[in-house]
């Protein structure tokens, strides 16, 4: 394409706009979390706080009982516990989903067995079912099994609703890998299992990294499922905890923003560290 100086300039403006659009709300959240309620309520609005303060974080993590969040008292240690709930649910779910999805995705892509095509498409088809529909139907079953308001119940639901998508992504990834190394291993006398475990799995390393990141982000960010299936602080993850800081009439924005900033730290780190892998998998196959 012929290079126009105007086109070049246009592109620089567009890139600056993209960066501003992506970062401004996050920056605003960080600034708000360092403000006081007086700063936030100032008229006309004050963009920067008079004195940056960590009070919001202190009351969130330390839990001073007198810090009122629009009617909701932030209980000592409750938010830290919510972070722990999110982390433990995320780790257990991710581990379980990876095991099930990698084994099935690989087998559907490489092995021949009766019913392969039909089973594969049946599982993939369930990815269009809104998760919510499944959860309503599962509610009775979970209640009977005493898994409501239990982290284990959430893990079970995440595994059942995320496995189809994860399996599909693994399948597409394996399809793109060369078959020769495995064939060579089989000729050399490896069993099918050994060829999978020692040859194919190491080849899939970058795909598995991307998949793990995507599952971690999906599970960490899920709101509706835990909103339905948890009722006490014992099992509530951060996403369910945060909206409770929104007051009916006035909202303690510094506290709310601090909670948001803490909840977005893990996903931001994952997205930045593994972004090359994630981008590859998102643009390649889904």
């Amino acid at each position: 394409m012929i290079r126009f100086p105007a086109a070049q300039l246009l592109r620089i403006v567009a890139i600056a706009a993209i960066l501003l659009w992506s970062l401004a709300p996050i920056g605003l959240g960080v600034i708000t979390s360092l403000s006081t309620q007086t700063d936030v309520q100032a008229v006309p609005a004050r963009w920067l706080p008079h004195h940056a303060t960590l009070d919001a974080y202190r009351s969130l993590l330390g839990g001073s009982g007198d810090f009122r969040a629009g009617g909701t008292v932030s209980e000592s240690g409750a938010f830290t516990h919510a972070l722990w709930n999110s982390a433990s649910i995320m780790m257990l779910s991710t581990l379980a989903i990876l095991c099930v999805a990698i084994s099935a995705g690989y087998a559907f892509a490489r092995l021949r067995f009766p019913g392969r095509g039909a089973l594969f498409w049946a599982i993939v088809a369930t990815t269009v079912v809104p998760v919510f529909t499944v959860v309503i139907a599962l509610f009775g079953f979970l209640a009977d099994a005493h898994l409501i308001d239990r982290k284990l119940g959430l893990v079970l639901v995440f595994v059942s609703t995320t496995t189809p998508l994860a399996m599909w992504l693994v399948h597409n990834h394996v399809k793109q890998l060369p078959t020769e190394p495995e064939e060579a291993a089989l000729l050399d006398g490896c069993t099918r299992w050994q060829a999978f475990w020692h040859v194919a799995l190491p080849q899939m390393r970058s795909g598995i990294a991307a998949l793990s990141a995507i599952i971690v982000l999906l599970v960490w960010g899920e709101f509706l499922i835990p909103l339905l299936l948890t009722s006490t602080n014992a099992s509530k993850p951060v996403t369910v905890f945060i909206p409770e800081y929104i007051g009916k009439y006035t909202t303690n924005y510094p506290l709310l923003a601090a909670a948001g900033v803490l909840a977005m730290l893990p996903p931001t780190v994952v997205a930045l560290v593994l972004n090359r892998h994630i981008r590859g998998m998102l643009s390649g196959s889904s």
């Binding site: 992506s22 924005y253 923003a257 997205a271």
Partner: peptide, 26 residues
Amino acid sequence: AILLVPWALPSVVSGVLWRRVFDPDS
């Protein structure tokens, strides 16, 4: 990498970040 970040955040957090922008009083 920066472009990807908003997608990675929980949608509850996106809502929280934008809420202060649209608040009627402050």
